[in-house]
Simulated assay, not measured.
Amino acid sequence: MSTTESSSYYNHLEQMSVLELLTNINKEDQTVPLAVQKALPQMEALISQIVPRMKDGGRLFYIGAGTSGRLAIVDASECPPTYGVSPNIVVGIMAGGDKAIRKSVEHAEDDPNQAWKDLGTYKPTSKDTLIGVAASGRTPYVIGGVSEARKNGLLTGCITCNSGTRLAEAVEYPIEAVVGPEFVTGSTRMKSGTAQKLVLNMISTTVMIQLGHVKGNKMVDMQLSNEKLVQRGVRMVMDELKIEEPLASELLQKYGSVRGAVDNYPTHA
């Protein structure tokens, strides 16, 4: 039996008080970062291959099903507003399509040929990377997708929460964050989902920093899409240029981004 399907360390959950449930869930959650830490060398190996491809015009694709697919789509969708990149640079694809984000699509993950068809819309090339996300490591949609992508010259990786899976065997750079049994047996939206979210955060953030979308520790290419982000941008310009708020606001409005405001300020150019 796979680790993600093995029996919980806890029993008689229905007899626990609210505080007992919360305490035990939290206790299990604290083990997740340690499991992710063990996978750092695997992450480093994959990211080191992704970055040069993306510098050469490549893209990063995620595929997944269920919770894994939803997490992948969330990570991809947050890259444009956070780092100012095109929505076509980091792309999340989910079994069952966009409607599966909110509602389960029966048997969508069971077709090993569909993921490559879904990816075909984007006309993938050998510069691109495909990361399959599946806690179990046995989802046909994901395995089929990465297998076909590898045949076609794409860089392939995966994020799974079991060791020695078919998915890991199918890719060049597997990431295995083995978090152990779930608090509710088999409920991989819990610890496994948390581990996958952490890994996805680490991959996309590290890639974006390596691609130059962060200066110091600031998101200088973020989209100024609401008042909160505009005010954040003003503070970033003030901090970088050591100027007062009115001038920072004027520069940000004129150039449309923190990078533009900083790079075009006379004494900073």
Rank of each mutant, 00 (worst) to 15 (best):
R189N: 08
Q210W: 00
P174W: 13
K191F: 10
V207M: 07
E176I: 00
E172I: 13
T194W: 12
A177E: 04
I159V: 15
C158H: 04
A170G: 07
S187A: 15
E182R: 06
V184G: 07
T165K: 04
T194M: 14
Q210S: 15
S163F: 00
F183V: 15
T205Q: 02
A170P: 09
A168R: 04
R166M: 09
F183L: 15
P181S: 06
L155V: 11
T194V: 07
G153P: 12
I209N: 13
S187Y: 05
P181Q: 08
L211P: 02
I209Y: 07
L211V: 14
G186T: 05
Q196M: 08
T185P: 09
E176R: 04
G186M: 13
A170K: 04
K191Y: 13
A170N: 07
F183C: 04
V184D: 05
S163W: 04
G193T: 13
L200N: 15
A195Q: 12
T206K: 07
M202G: 08
N162I: 13
C161Y: 01
L200D: 14
L167S: 08
I159E: 03
A170H: 09
R166Y: 01
V178A: 02
I203A: 06
V184P: 04
I203P: 02
S192L: 05
L167P: 06
K191G: 09
V171I: 09
N162D: 10
F183G: 00
L155K: 08
E176S: 14
Y173L: 01
T194S: 13
F183E: 00
T165D: 12
Q210P: 01
R166H: 09
E176C: 12
Q196P: 11
T185W: 10
P181K: 12
I159G: 05
V178F: 00
G164I: 09
G164P: 10
T205H: 05
S163A: 14
G164T: 11
R166F: 00
M202I: 14
T185H: 07
Y173T: 03
E169C: 00
Q196A: 12
S192K: 12
R189T: 06
G193A: 05
M190R: 10
C158W: 02
A170D: 04
V179W: 00
V199E: 15
G193W: 15
S192Y: 09
Q210R: 15
I159L: 15
T206S: 15
T188I: 07
Q196L: 12
K197N: 11
C158N: 10
V184M: 13
I203R: 06
S163H: 02
E176M: 03
I209A: 14
G180W: 00
T205I: 07
S187R: 02
G186F: 03
V178D: 11
I175M: 03
T185R: 09
L155D: 13
V184E: 11
G157M: 02
S187K: 04
C158F: 05
C161R: 05
P174A: 09
V199K: 07
G193L: 06
T188K: 08
G193N: 11
N201V: 07
L200F: 12
A177K: 08
I209R: 12
Y173Q: 03
V171P: 03
K191Q: 11
L200W: 15
V179Q: 01
I159C: 06
E176N: 14
L167N: 13
E169Q: 14
E169H: 09
L211K: 12
I159H: 03
V178K: 03
I175A: 04
K197A: 07
A168T: 07
